[in-house]
């Protein structure tokens, strides 16, 4: 009989009306992020980095700037370089992750943040100081083996895995730790490459 389809439609909307809305109130509530989320920031472990600049070389856009100087210590394996500048201009980054893939020492990862809007283009450049001070929440994109270490994204109750996945920065804070201007100081001017 005709018309029953219409009544069925009324039932569907009524069901939606009665059940809890699916809306997530974003700034207050958050969806859990997947650990392989490729965020708009980078996680850099300076102690593992040898300043080989593979990342800078493989970046298709050439937006990683690394300046080093020889440390002076004559090691048998070769010199360890000290890092003066390690800048990533995420204003131009396309988050392809090739730099992460290129890093031979697991020193560079994509991060998991995504609230990176800034008032100035210059603020979009992530400096070495910010990378050093930032909380480390590496994305496991390109490094899924990280997920094996005490974290199972498939299980119902995920073990809190401090080192991977979740953004812990409370967005209400005006500045994230390690960011230029976090200590009330002005953001350093003249970022690399400008």
């Amino acid at each position: 009989m005709y018309g029953l389809g219409i009544l069925n439609g009324f039932l569907v909307t009524m069901k939606n009306f009665i059940k809890k809305p699916v809306t997530i109130q974003y700034p207050e509530e958050r969806n859990p992020q997947h650990p392989r989320f490729r965020g708009e920031e980078f996680v850099w472990y300076e102690d593992r980095c040898t300043a080989c600049a593979s990342c800078a070389k493989y970046c298709p856009l050439g937006i990683i700037k690394i300046v080093t100087h020889p440390s002076g210590g004559k090691l048998p394996e070769g010199d360890a370089y000290a890092i003066d500048v390690f800048d990533i201009d995420i204003g131009r980054c396309m988050f392809c992750g090739l730099c992460v893939e290129a890093c031979p020492y697991d020193a560079l990862f994509m991060g998991s943040g995504f609230e990176e809007s800034k008032y100035k283009r210059a603020d979009l450049v992530i400096h070495a100081d910010r990378l050093r001070a930032a909380e480390k929440h590496p994305s496991t994109w390109f490094r899924p083996q990280l997920e094996g270490r005490g974290y199972d994204p498939q299980s119902d109750a995920p073990v809190p895995w401090k080192e991977a996945g979740r953004e812990s920065w409370p967005h209400h804070l005006p500045q994230r730790p390690g960011e230029p201007g976090a200590d009330g100081a002005d953001a350093p001017s003249s970022p690399a490459g400008h």
Partner: peptide, 10 residues
């Protein structure tokens, strides 16, 4: 508000 609820939003 009600239209939102019918469409399963707030």
């Amino acid at each position: 508000r009600l239209l939102g609820r019918f469409q399963s939003r707030l």
